[in-house]
Write a protein that binds this DNA or RNA. Structure first.
Lengths: 255, 255
DNA sequence: AACCTAGTTCCACTATTTGGAACTTGCAAG
DNA sequence: CTTGCAAGTTCCAAATAGTGGAACTAGGTT
């Protein structure tokens, strides 16, 4: 994306490697990257012996380093809502018996920071850390609806409006209309806009100052629920987000 | 630690910020870092607008950026045993009803990659990503005991032999003696060596080639169990580690 | 109003990064 | 066996990007 000197390039490389969902060969990464061979090579060497990347000499592949995992652990504990929200999400999960997501915004994209799975117990990290587009998820819309106009504008400019299902918003205008309504209502619905058969109700997490810092959603399938029945969870959901908002100190995201 | 050009410094800065377990002021970080003010300042700016750090203008604090979380998610799927081991750990957890850890080695330190909590359901990521010393944990010793001599030597050179409890090994010799015995026995015990009241039984995960890539432990408290009763879990544990080892492709750690 | 201290900017100096090209490996086809 | 090709690695002079001392600004304190 941008080019902030060497460090910026290093970050780009990390991102590239992350983009392969498996360990990748040097050449694969080279092809996907804008850097000349020698440059990329040196960068990857540096990152490798910093522990940010891991190189397997036998398979000649690079993957993300464990040092990164350790740092991310710190990140999770520090800059995210997750640790504050955890007990509240536990309680909410127990109450509603559905899958719950906690999300934050990272430049126009929804980042899932934590979740509670209804029945099957684990897999937490597997979903946590995943990114979804803002315009087609309950949490995304809940966050957008409560952003300040300028932040909203910036976020929307980065939207691609990919049409995942027939219900997905495919332009800014229809989305904006819904956002206004969400703002009034206090909760957002995902009516199979991201995935066929999956619906959710979501509410923003607001700081005392009124700043949105994230959102919580209760998701279900069309088999078990409809948007109308999800409506029943609204009080519990709003209670949870309010409590998280109260407890959140405003170490939130920049810009 | 080491100095690999700008990127190395950037990593050091990230580590510094991570070391504070809360968002930190510029000056706090400055004091803890070897870099001059201007240099640190520029580095942190770069990292911030790369999303590796997050800056809160209101509180004037830095914390780890969400971009790291996203990358770590990739790391989890790529370079760790976790996705392969997940179903097997689930089964093991159900069988033994105790807390289970999955760990990998990162230059002399044990990194917890995944866990299953006996009773309380969640908190997964909270522990996942944490680092513990190798000489005083079941998983650590299980891994060390099956390393090749040269890797072992390198790993031990980085050990500090901190004495956490009266039972902790405080020198290489006593540790080596136990490692030999563990190698023979196939499992390692942690007899309150890291934390008073916590014991565990651990077994290494071996690749077909015989290379250790990690370890699994079953942990309990002295109230509920003793090393002797943990012994009863040995078959289930060995079965689990064997199965993980079979399925693991050798994208493992470098050097 | 004078005085700190945390945070930010400046800028000449220099060390680091750059990347084209040449070299090495390892394997596969002739 | 040797020729050819592709992946990976090293070189080095040119130039860019990083350095850090010092000077500046903001905002709070005595």
């Amino acid at each position: 994306m941008s080019a902030d000197g060497t460090v910026g390039k290093a970050c780009d490389v990390l991102e590239q490697v992350a983009a392969f969902k498996r360990p990748a060969r040097f050449n694969e990464i080279l092809e996907a990257s804008p850097f000349p061979k020698a440059t990329l090579y040196r960068l990857m060497q540096t990152l490798t012996n910093q522990g940010m990347l891991a190189y397997d000499p036998e398979a000649q592949t690079y993957s993300m380093g464990l040092r990164l995992v350790r740092m991310a652990h710190a990140a999770w504990g520090q800059s995210s809502l997750a640790p504050i929200a955890a007990p509240i999400l536990d309680k909410l999960a127990a109450e509603v018996g559905e899958t719950i997501h906690l999300a934050q915004m990272e430049n126009g994209q929804v980042l899932f920071v934590d979740k509670r799975r209804a029945s099957v117990l684990f897999e937490t990290l597997a979903q946590t850390g995943r990114v979804a587009p803002a315009h087609s998820t309950g949490v995304g819309k809940a966050i957008l609806a409560f952003m300040t106009p300028d932040r909203l504008e910036r976020a929307l400019r980065q939207q691609a409006f990919v049409k995942y299902t027939p219900n997905t918003h495919d332009n800014a205008d229809s989305l904006m209309a819904e956002l206004a309504q969400i703002h009034e209502d206090g909760v957002a619905f995902d009516r199979e806009e991201h995935e066929q058969g999956i619906i959710s109700i979501a509410a923003p997490i607001l700081l005392g100052s009124g700043k949105v810092v994230g959102a919580v959603s209760i998701a279900s399938t069309t088999n078990r629920n409809s948007p109308d029945t999800l409506q029943a969870f609204k009080p519990a959901l709003l209670d949870a987000t309010a409590r998280i908002g109260e407890q959140a100190t405003p170490w939130q995201f920049p810009t």
